[in-house]
Design a protein around this nucleic acid. Structure first.
Length: 576
DNA sequence: GCCGTTTTCGGCCCGACTGTTTTCAGTCG
């Protein structure tokens, strides 16, 4: 099995956990964490980079030592330093770092005094009343630990994060309620939610008000609050029923921009901006930018960036993945917006597993202001969805022709979501595919092929000159199913050569491609399709999640085919 | 362990809240 970027990142993070528990130099710890973040955010395979002479040179936070360690990991799939650390300390300790309220110091004490070596041990020690006996711990901390283990669903693989769409549903009623609180001048949801990350760990609500008591009070007493974790004058935290943690921060109006910037993050982006401040003898915090005691920026986010010689940086870019450098050089992308989308290229109807007719879907698409909509029902291999065989597809084509004759202002595109069979052949014959406006194709079965076979399978499908778009390319379902083994970089290069493309599936359960692969596509000049995979009329609105992901991947309107008017789109869909 | 429009050595973001304490360490974001 090849080494993925995430494998390297996980090893570095684990090293950082152990070093921290050991009480090592905090800056060394930070170096490993930074390196983990850099590797996880790379738009190219770190294994490939490691194979190149200077491939790892100049990566932020990765110097000679860590570059060597990466090469070791790629070559041997392990890191001697980590193996040594695991001999010194029990392997399970790193999982304890995921328990909220437990940090390196407490974990070290629990291990030293109670021989706690795993989540299991921790639970036992807490239930047995052992923890309260330790200095610095109490019965209260013991209870808190037990609650945390239950509440956050801590596993060996970390804590469960909420899908963005789920978090949106849970937090919207609270957000709407807080808007009505007395004294609220400005209010926004910040954090990873505002950066449109695919999942969020918690939700940060920010309020500007001269007096905080009314809004704080309304917050902690909101109907859906299951537990108040902290309650202060400027900051409170609650857990809503369903387990989502929400933090509320209240700042003075003059600090709105600084606070919004600070609480939007990412943490890495903030640290980088603060460092720019330190170099100019300025202090950047959530209240503003200060020279000595004098506030010189912070009412708006724009003002802060301007002070450092940069244009406004969109939240989706704030991951410290090169956006600050790009901003300084005035090379920021003009990110795609929802309004740029002119049509959806992947939707289902009740002919297979959708809920509405093509006509109803067309009506919903028209309401959204779309110019075109591709009807892409499943092909016969997807028996569960009653996929179309050639005969039924032929009838569907005729029906769409009839519909198009009476539709005004919107064109339905004749298409199919064609299954790629295990050997890379396609589920329907070329003769019928030639009748379609475009063909999108997907993998729905045989997920467990070896990586090279899976990659070959998909590329073979792309060899067919009727094929235009490879859908939900990694096959992952967020929080539910990992991606199948596939070399997407290779698939993308194949797509560029064959004048076809990949989909960014906008469904919030998928968001597939991820942000890193979107950026990879952009860098190799591959123009993507952003589609919802809608199974109902409402689903067309999921496009906004795809746009969020695309923006995180630095995509501009020109990088996406369904921003084009129909005649241009048709040209782009033509293969030689 | 990284890094450099002051630097190859000596720095490395910053503040709020909690808990167990009597002035602060630990944790979090």
């Amino acid at each position: 099995m090849p080494i993925h970027n995430n494998d390297v990142a996980e090893i570095f993070d684990e090293v950082a956990d152990f070093l921290e528990i050991k009480g090592e130099n905090q800056f060394r710890v930070r170096a490993y964490r930074n390196a983990a973040r850099t590797v996880a955010g790379l738009s190219r395979s770190v294994a490939d980079l490691a194979a190149e002479e200077k491939g790892l040179d100049g990566l932020p936070g990765i110097g000679k030592d860590l570059a060597d360690k990466i090469r070791t990991i790629v070559k041997t799939k392990s890191l001697p330093l980590l193996e040594d650390l695991k001999k010194e300390l029990p392997e399970g300790l790193s999982a304890l770092m995921k328990v909220r309220g437990l940090g390196p110091k407490k974990i070290a004490a629990l291990h030293k005094e109670l021989k706690v070596a795993s989540l299991e041990d921790l639970k036992k020690a807490a239930t047995g009343g052992k923890i309260r006996e330790l200095p610095g711990f109490s019965e209260k901390t013991e209870q808190a630990i037990l609650e945390e283990i239950g509440r956050t669903k801590v596993t060996e693989h970390g804590t469960v994060r909420f899908k963005l769409a789920v978090a949106e549903q849970i937090v919207t009623p609270l957000f709407e309620d807080l808007k009505k609180a007395k004294g609220v001048e400005e209010i926004a949801i910040a954090g990873s939610y505002r950066r449109r990350a695919e999942t969020v760990g918690d939700v940060d609500i920010l309020v500007a008000a001269e007096k905080s008591d009314a809004v704080m009070d309304r917050f902690v007493h909101f109907d859906d609050v299951a537990k108040v974790l902290a309650e202060g004058e400027t900051k409170s935290s609650v857990v809503l029923r369903g387990g989502l943690q929400v933090d509320l921060r209240v700042v003075p109006c003059a600090s709105w921009g600084a606070a919004l910037h600070y609480f939007t993050g990412s943490k890495a982006h903030n640290i980088a901006v603060r460092l720019m401040g330190v170099k100019r003898k300025l202090k950047v915090n959530e209240y503003g930018v200060f020279r000595a005691k004098k506030m010189i920026a912070g009412r708006t986010e724009e003002g802060i960036y301007k002070l450092f010689g940069m244009p406004y940086i969109e939240p989706e870019l704030r991951e410290d993945r090169g956006e600050l450098k790009a901003a300084l050089k005035r090379k920021l992308p003009h990110l795609i917006r929802l309004e740029d989308i002119r049509g959806d290229l992947h939707v289902h109807t009740k002919e297979t597993d959708g809920r509405y007719s093509a006509e109803e879907m067309a009506g919903a698409a028209k309401k959204r202001g779309y110019e075109y909509l591709a009807i892409t029902d499943h092909s016969k291999r997807v028996t569960m969805a009653r996929g179309l065989d050639a005969k039924r597809l032929a009838k569907a084509i005729k029906d769409i022709d009839k519909l198009n004759a009476k539709l005004k202002g919107l064109t339905l595109l004749k298409s199919i979501e064609l299954d790629i069979l295990a050997d890379g052949t396609l589920d329907l014959p070329d003769s019928i595919l030639g009748e379609l406006d475009l063909v999108v194709c997907s993998v729905h079965y045989n997920f467990n092929l070896p990586k090279d076979k899976q990659t070959e399978r998909v590329i073979r499908a792309l060899d067919n000159r009727h094929v235009n778009i490879f859908c939900h390319p990694s096959g992952r379902l967020i929080n539910e199913r990992p991606a199948y083994e596939i070399d997407l970089e290779k698939v993308m290069r194949a797509a560029v050569e064959r004048r076809c493309t990949l989909e960014l599936n906008a469904h919030p359960d998928r968001l597939d491609l991820d942000d890193v692969h979107c950026q990879m596509a952009k860098e190799m000049g591959l123009k993507l399709a952003i589609s919802t995979d809608a199974h109902s009329m409402d689903d067309l609105a999921l496009m906004r999640f795809g746009i969020g992901q695309a923006r995180r991947g630095w995509l501009e309107p020109a990088d996406v085919i369904n921003t084009r008017p129909l005649p241009e789109l048709r040209k782009l869909l033509k293969r030689i």
